[in-house]
């Protein structure tokens, strides 16, 4: 009975196979390798190779050519031949994508400490000369790889006017107060509250510096922070208790500052304002 069943099954399989034509190729999966105990990725993916795609020679170390012909290999998605110079966007696009296959060592070998190529491809020519063009308005791109100190180690050694930041080249602090008076910086040191005698309501006269520094700060606030980590220079004018008392807050500040205030237990607020119970600005609503 069992033998007859096997014959029937065999005949059915043979008929189906003949009707289906040539044997269809199987799709390659990593799972098969894992199940067979091949868990070391470097068996196929050669360390230091220019491409993540294994060399066919690596396949032939273990498999016959005829056997390989029965497999199809999936279409490459993120790991094309020039992955090394193209992976940035893939890494940015999906936070968990890289880590689903790679250990963190894989990233850190190149991005922290390993200087094989000294600098990434995006840093062309003498990048010190070019970097202001790239960094202008999008310093977050720098921060993806560099710690703050990477910028400040160099920037803090330059005079502001040498950095070629427009606002720093036309600094108000060197301009005289009125005609032939003290420099603004000296006047501020002597009497911070005297600013409002000439600039009522925190309004600056039409110095180019005013709009330049505002635009630069709004686009590049992380650059300001690089050289002025505590922001004391900002508070000369933007404090609520001295100087021009010019508000630096965004337009929707009234409706969304509560969370920030609570998070720092209002200590950040008190860098510029009197404690909530006493500050007239806060008392308007609170």
């Amino acid at each position: 009975m069992r033998a007859r069943s096997l014959h029937v099954l065999g005949a059915a399989w043979l008929t189906a196979a003949l009707l289906a034509g040539p044997v269809r190729a199987q799709e390659f999966t990593h799972q098969t390798h894992r199940e067979e105990g091949v868990t070391d990725c470097t068996v196929c993916h050669e360390p230091g190779a220019l491409t993540i795609v294994p060399d066919r020679k690596a396949c032939l170390d273990c498999h016959e050519e005829d056997e390989l012909a029965t497999y199809t290999f999936g279409k490459l998605k993120t790991h094309g031949p020039f992955w090394a110079t193209e992976h940035e966007r893939d890494a940015e696009a999906s936070n968990a994508n890289c880590s689903s296959c790679h250990e963190q060592k894989f990233c850190l070998d190149c991005h922290k400490g390993d200087p094989k190529h000294q600098r990434p491809d995006m840093h062309v020519a003498d990048y010190l000369e070019i970097h202001p063009i790239k960094a202008w308005g999008n310093e977050d791109a720098c921060r993806k790889c560099h710690e703050v100190s990477f910028c400040t180690d160099c920037h803090k050694r330059f005079r502001g006017e040498d950095l070629k930041v427009l606002s720093h080249r036309r600094g108000w602090s060197d301009k005289p107060v009125g005609t032939g008076g003290r420099r603004h910086a000296e006047q501020f040191q002597a009497d911070p509250d005297s600013c409002r005698q000439c600039h009522p309501g925190g309004i600056l006269s039409s110095h180019q510096w005013t709009s330049d520094h505002q635009r630069e700060a709004r686009r590049s606030l992380t650059t300001c922070q690089s050289c002025h980590p505590r922001g004391k220079v900002c508070l000369r004018c933007h404090s609520a208790t001295q100087g021009l008392k010019a508000s630096p807050h965004p337009k929707n500040w009234n409706s969304n500052h509560e969370r920030l205030a609570r998070a720092s237990d209002e200590r950040t607020c008190e860098k510029c304002h009197e404690p909530k119970g006493r500050d007239p600005v806060c008392q308007r609503c609170h």
Binding site: T222, C224, G231, T268, K271, C272
Partner: peptide
């Protein structure tokens, strides 16, 4: 939130 820069536009 502990940085003064968090309140700037």
């Amino acid at each position: 939130s502990t940085s003064i820069y968090s309140v700037f536009a």
